[in-house]
Amino acid sequence: MKQKINWPVTIAAGVAGGIIGGLVKLGWENILPPRTPERDQTNPPQKLLQQLGIPAKITHSTYTYSGHQLPWVSYLVHFGFSTGFGVTYSLAGQLLPWLKFGHGVPFGIAVWNAFHVELMPALGTVPAAKDQPLEEHISEILGHAVWMWTIDEIIRGINSEN
C-alpha cells in the first residue's frame, strides 16, 4: 500500500534541510577552504552571475557585520542552490525512495560531480576538473557529502514527526 505524501510538509522539510545544509556547507568551507585566496577573489557564484551579464559591482556587493565584509550576493546564490536541492531531494525522495540511499551521501557526491566536474568547467566558470587543485576536490567532495547528509537528516527528522 502506497503512503500518501504530505506535500506541504515535504516541501517545508526540503526548505529547512536546504537552509541548515547550506549553513553546514559554509562552515565546512571555513575548515577546508576549496579555493585559493586568489581564486576566491571572484568565487564561482559571482563568476557565474557575471557570465550571465550581472556587473561585478553587484556580484561583489557586501554587507558589514562585526567589521567583516560579507558577500550577500554569493550567499543568496549559495542558499538558493542549497534550498533548491533540499526541496528537490525531499520531493524526489518521496517519489523515488532509492535516491535516499546512503542518507543522501551518494546524491551529494553526484551533485558535486554534475556541477564542479561537468557543468561549471564546461561553462568556463571554474577550471577543468584536471586543472583544479586536489585540495579543492577533497573539500568539495566531502563538503557535498556532509551537506546532503545534513539535508537528509533534517528531512527524515521532520517527516518522522508527521
Results as ranks from 00 to 15, higher is better:
residue 118 E to F: 15
residue 118 E to N: 14
residue 118 E to C: 14
residue 118 E to H: 13
residue 118 E to W: 15
residue 119 L to N: 03
residue 119 L to T: 06
residue 119 L to S: 09
residue 119 L to P: 01
residue 120 M to G: 12
residue 120 M to H: 08
residue 121 P to V: 01
residue 121 P to S: 05
residue 121 P to Y: 06
residue 121 P to G: 05
residue 122 A to C: 10
residue 122 A to D: 13
residue 122 A to T: 08
residue 122 A to K: 03
residue 122 A to E: 11
residue 122 A to F: 03
residue 123 L to D: 10
residue 123 L to R: 03
residue 123 L to N: 09
residue 124 G to A: 07
residue 124 G to M: 10
residue 124 G to H: 08
residue 124 G to S: 13
residue 125 T to M: 08
residue 125 T to Q: 06
residue 125 T to G: 01
residue 125 T to R: 09
residue 125 T to S: 07
residue 125 T to P: 09
residue 125 T to H: 08
residue 125 T to C: 10
residue 126 V to E: 03
residue 126 V to P: 06
residue 126 V to G: 04
residue 126 V to W: 10
residue 126 V to Y: 02
residue 126 V to F: 06
residue 127 P to I: 14
residue 127 P to M: 13
residue 127 P to L: 12
residue 127 P to K: 14
residue 127 P to R: 12
residue 127 P to Y: 04
residue 128 A to D: 10
residue 128 A to Q: 12
residue 128 A to T: 04
residue 128 A to N: 04
residue 128 A to H: 09
residue 128 A to V: 11
residue 129 A to S: 15
residue 129 A to W: 04
residue 129 A to F: 12
residue 129 A to G: 07
residue 130 K to V: 14
residue 130 K to H: 08
residue 131 D to S: 05
residue 131 D to K: 00
residue 131 D to G: 02
residue 131 D to L: 00
residue 131 D to V: 02
residue 132 Q to M: 00
residue 132 Q to C: 00
residue 132 Q to N: 00
residue 132 Q to D: 00
residue 132 Q to S: 01
residue 133 P to S: 05
residue 133 P to H: 05
residue 133 P to R: 03
residue 133 P to G: 10
residue 133 P to I: 01
residue 134 L to P: 09
residue 134 L to Y: 14
residue 134 L to A: 15
residue 134 L to F: 14
residue 134 L to M: 15
residue 134 L to K: 07
residue 134 L to E: 12
residue 134 L to Q: 11
residue 135 E to N: 13
residue 135 E to F: 14
residue 135 E to V: 11
residue 136 E to S: 04
residue 136 E to P: 00
residue 137 H to Q: 12
residue 137 H to T: 02
residue 137 H to Y: 07
residue 137 H to C: 02
residue 138 I to S: 02
residue 138 I to M: 08
residue 138 I to T: 02
residue 138 I to E: 02
residue 138 I to R: 01
residue 139 S to E: 05
residue 139 S to V: 03
residue 139 S to N: 04
residue 139 S to P: 10
residue 139 S to T: 03
residue 139 S to Y: 00
residue 139 S to W: 01
residue 139 S to G: 09
residue 140 E to L: 12
residue 140 E to D: 15
residue 140 E to S: 13
residue 141 I to Y: 06
residue 141 I to R: 02
residue 141 I to W: 02
residue 141 I to S: 11
residue 141 I to N: 10
residue 142 L to D: 02
residue 142 L to I: 15
residue 142 L to K: 09
residue 142 L to Y: 11
residue 143 G to D: 03
residue 143 G to M: 00
residue 143 G to W: 04
residue 143 G to C: 02
residue 143 G to V: 06
residue 144 H to F: 06
residue 144 H to Q: 08
residue 144 H to M: 08
residue 144 H to I: 05
residue 144 H to T: 11
residue 145 A to D: 13
residue 145 A to P: 12
residue 145 A to I: 09
residue 145 A to C: 12
residue 145 A to E: 11
residue 145 A to G: 11
residue 145 A to M: 11
residue 146 V to E: 07
residue 146 V to T: 10
residue 146 V to W: 01
residue 146 V to N: 01
residue 146 V to S: 00
residue 146 V to G: 04
residue 147 W to S: 02
residue 147 W to P: 08
residue 147 W to N: 05
residue 148 M to Q: 11
residue 148 M to N: 06
residue 149 W to L: 07
residue 149 W to I: 03
residue 149 W to A: 05
residue 149 W to C: 08
